[in-house]
Structures are given as structure tokens and as C-alpha cells.
Computed example of a mutant assay.
Amino acid sequence: MKKTFLALFAASVLAFSCTEKKAAPELTLSGLDKKNFETETNGKGTDLYVLKNSAGMEVCITNFGARIVSIMIPDKDGQMKDVVLGFDSIQDYLNIPSDFGAAIGRYANRINKGHFELDGEHFQLPINNFGHSLHGGPKGFQYAVYNATQIDDKTIELSYLAKDGEQGYPGNLDCKVTYTLTEDNAIDIKYAAETDKATIINMTNHSYFNLDGDATVSSKDWLLTLNADSYTPVDTTFMTTGEILTVEGTDMDFRVPTAIGSRIDNFEFDQLKNGNGYDHNWVLNTNGDIAKVAATLESLKSGIVLDVYTTEPGIQFYAGNFLDGTVKGKQGVTYQQRVGVCLETQKYPDAPNKKDWPSATLRPGEKYESHTIFKFSVKK
């Protein structure tokens, strides 16, 4: 009788153990639990999608704002590192306003006082940043739930219909963002859109990169190179003045690899004072050639290198100056100032109000297309 009891007890323990194992969450390589991204908002379901290549790289994306949540790549020692900032759950993305990893639209960056004219008609957008409209307004695309179709292990398509009048913009805009993880460790991003009424559009990705894979470390020692001879200066409200100035002889010159922290606090230079550090658009020399490197970011500590390619005429280098320790991200890490760097490929800020700059206008029958590549490698 005793033996029978012991046998039954052992069997029950084994069964409980198996149940416990089955109940354990299946985590991504970056430690994300897919269930934490499965909810409903604005009447649409959200989820987490995982892209992988044969080299072992992993990219996690949510259809809430078409955001890149994590990027896992090996460092110079072969250790896997998560090199973007973000949150562990969809609730944090919903509750904590941020642009982490998002596909920004309808118009990335700032529009002066939120107004522009198109074909003689005046449009007023919501004001949400120092008297201007930033990143599509307070309810831009980063807060929209995209329709998601995962094509295969390496590609996902996310689509969104922005209705006529949404956030003050004209035209029903049918847009799509396609992320493809390549075999050579690049994230290939293609934007496409069509409209039924003349409108403006300027989409970008707003990932905060931390190439150390350690969000407690600032960007001051990372090396940045920008393929740009000029930039667009800003006033004290972060609005472009309409000028295009040379970087020659200024703290804006990144034509050779330069440590980000070497000059960022030189507030005697009015542009760094106005931007609270680097938060400016550079005029690229690449002329829309996707084969030419627009920017390179490198961590000497991890050996991880990020090369940026784009068809866009400009790139916004933002050093995370407004991160202030009030937000906790993945794994409970507090995001302090300048622990992430954004390299936002784009039309120039406020281009709709500056007629000599590359146009952001899209008309019926035309197709908006933009292409950006984030290519990762390791320097040992």
C-alpha cells in the first residue's frame, strides 16, 4: 500500500512538473513575452511579431505604431545584445507616450506652428511641441494600430489607412511599412503610400539605438559619421530657420568619425544650446542613392557598427537629450539622458512651408516611396 502511494505521489509530482513547464512563457531571444503584446486597442488587436535570419539575428516588431521593439545582434565577442530602447509590454507603449521604435507619420519632425498651405488651401494641425506640430501631432501614426501580415520569417508588412482630416491632414492616405531582415544583418525598411486628395507625407523610423546593448550607458563615447556638408539650423523652439549652413569649422561637422560627447555640451555654440544638444537635420550628400552610406554609428566597447542608407535627402540626428530618467524601459532599466541615438531619415523639417526645399507633397495618382536600410556589422 505504501509503495502504491509513493508511486502515485511521484506520478502526480511528475505531472505537475510537466504542467509547470508547459505553462512557462516562451520568450524571444531578447526576453520578450509575446502574450504581453496581445491585447485590443481602438477596436483592433495588437501583437508581437518576430523576424529571424540564419545568422541568428532577431528583430521584434509590434503593430502598435509599427514599432521595432528589440534588435538582437552579436557584439565583437559573439555575445547577443539588444541595441534599441523600448518596453516589455504593450501596456507600457499605450500608457507612456513615446516614439520608441515607431513608424512616424503623417509628417515626421516639425511643422511650423502646425500650419501649411497646399494648392491655396490653409491647413491647421494640432500643436504639441514648443508651439509646433511634431511627428504627425499628439495622435500620429506611432499611436495607430496597423494591420499586420507576416510574409515569412524575415518579412512583415504593416498597413494603415489615415482618414481625411485625421490630425488635420487632408486626404485618405493608404500607407504601408515593410520590414525585411536580410541575411547580412540589415533591417530593410520600405514605406509606400497613396492618397485620394493632395496631401503631405514624410515617414521615418524613430528607433533609439544603444550600440553598447546596455541602456545604462550614454552615447558620449560612440563614434558618429554623417555624410553631409551642411545642415539646417534651428531657433530656440527647435524650428528650422530656412537656412542651409555649412558644417565646416563648426560643432556640426561629423564628416569624419567623431565621439558624440566630445562637443555636445558646448552651449556657447548657439545651435547646441538651441537644440539642447544635437537635435538637427543634416543635408545628405548621397542624392537619394540607396547604395551610399548616409551615416555610421559605432561603439568601440561592443564593436557593433550601424550603417544607415536612405533615398531621403536628410537625416535627423537626435541624441536623446529629452530622456530624463522618468521612464523605465525593458527589464526595468531607467532611461537616462542620451542613452539612445536616433537617426531619422526624412524630408527636411517644415518642408511644406519652405518651397525651395525638397517637396513633401503627394497627389492622387502618385505613389509615395521611401527606402531606408539599417545595416549592422561588427568591428573586432
Rank of each mutant, 00 (worst) to 15 (best):
T311H: 05
D253I: 13
A198T: 04
P349A: 05
Y107L: 01
S30Y: 01
T246K: 08
I96E: 04
L14K: 00
N285F: 04
R67L: 02
A228C: 13
A351S: 08
Y348D: 07
F269A: 15
T246Q: 09
E121M: 03
S262K: 10
N353Y: 02
H280L: 13
S262E: 10
G329R: 07
F376D: 12
I304H: 09
V378G: 13
L272Q: 13
N227Q: 06
S218H: 08
Q337Y: 02
A291C: 11
F322D: 03
T180N: 14
L306A: 13
V50I: 12
K220I: 02
K21M: 15
Y169C: 04
D289Q: 01
E38A: 02
D92T: 06
M72C: 07
L323P: 05
Y368C: 09
D307W: 11
L224E: 13
S207F: 12
A294P: 08
P138W: 02
I290S: 06
K355D: 06
G329M: 09
E157K: 01
L125R: 04
G213D: 07
A193L: 08
P358W: 04
A7W: 06
K3H: 14
A148L: 08
S17K: 00
D235K: 06
G140M: 00
I260P: 08
Q167P: 05
K154L: 15
G78V: 08
E248V: 06
V69G: 00
E40C: 04
T204Q: 04
S159T: 08
L134D: 01
A295L: 14
L161H: 02
P364D: 12
K35A: 13
M239A: 08
T41R: 00
L48N: 00
D214R: 07
L8R: 10
T236A: 09
G213N: 11
K35N: 11
C60A: 05
T237N: 08
P352V: 07
F37C: 00
T204P: 05
A10F: 01
E166D: 06
S219W: 06
L94Y: 00
V256H: 15
L125V: 03
L94M: 01
N353R: 03
N42P: 04
M57G: 12
V293H: 12
L181F: 14
E268C: 15
A186F: 14
V59Y: 03
L118E: 00
G275F: 10
K22W: 13
G131N: 05
Q331H: 14
Q91C: 04
G114I: 02
Y278V: 13
K2C: 14
I156R: 05
